[in-house]
Structures are given as structure tokens and as C-alpha cells.
Amino acid sequence: MTHPLRDDCPLEYNLFRRQLLGGGIAFIGLAAVPYGVAAFADTVPNMPLPKFMEVSSLLINHQLNGDVGGRLATAMGVAYPDIEQNIDAILVIARKNNAKIVEDFYPDIPPGKLQDAALAIISAWYSGVISEELGSEVYAYELALMYQPASDVMTIPSYAISGPNGWNASAAPLADMPKF
């Protein structure tokens, strides 16, 4: 009976969650002060937010929420201790290519740890988790980007699609893409 996310579950799983939570809580305060990272950089082993947001915006050409970014940055900093170096390297490649969108520089990211880091960041924003293992914490659901490409037709489950009986059998063409 060891469910990692339950509040009445054994201690070892609670610790895992508290560890992430601790980082998260520290970052709630941080998120309120967008670029005031310096004060916290010494207390939590994590990623500076501005850099994380910069690389995220280059890898994902959509609107990204700064508060969610703050939580992801902290969590990824804990889960991937060398992520800051990888992000620095990816940013170098992006700047070299004068990149505005991900297609401008992604092919030049070498396979291996840099590409893995890039895909991990993309996956985090899209799925709202940084690990799909049992017990992974959810940083975004309503704002998880993977629900956006089909959002003109299907609802994000547990949210209303319309008023009562306000939906019908028509659907937008597959070639459309919602703006997000």
C-alpha cells in the first residue's frame, strides 16, 4: 500500500514529495518576483529562472507561464544536476544560429546529453511533469501544452466545453492549429 502521492502513505515516499515540494515552495515566493533570483540562488540548488525561460522560449515557440516555468526550473534543477551547463550550451548554439524559432537551431544540437536536455525541457512544458514515473509531481495540467493542439475541438478533461448541450458533431479541419 505504497502510493507515493497519498497523504497517509509511508514515509519514504513522503520525503521524495517533500523534497520537490520544498523547492516548489521556495519558488512560489520567487515567482512573485520575476527576476529576483539572486537572493535564492544560494539556498536551493537550482536553475536561474531567466535562463530557463530563455531557453524554453527558444525551444517552444508558444506563450509560457512564468510561474509554471519557475516550478519547472527548480524541479529540473534538482532532477538533472547538470542541466544549467546543458542549457548554457544549447543557448550558445541558438545564438550562433541567430535562432528565433526552434527549427532554426534544433538540428544543430548534437544527440546525447544536449539533445536529451532539450527534449526533457520540451517534454516538461508539454506534459506538465518532468518524469512519468509513478509518483511524479504535476506542475501543470491546465497549462500543459500537449492539450493545446487539439483544444479547438476537444476539451481538457474536467473543464466545460460549453454550456449545456452546447457541443455538436462539427470539427475543425485537421490542418488547423490553435494559437497558443
Partner: peptide, 15 residues
């Protein structure tokens, strides 16, 4: 969308 999203993410696609 959930199943489709997770499957697409496993393919290493971007943008």
C-alpha cells in the same frame, strides 16, 4: 489528447 500528446512526445519531435 493525453494519450496522443504523450505518444507524440516520445518521438523526439520539436516545434
Amino acid at each position: 489528447s493525453r494519450v496522443g500528446g504523450l505518444a507524440a512526445l516520445k518521438k523526439g519531435l520539436v516545434g
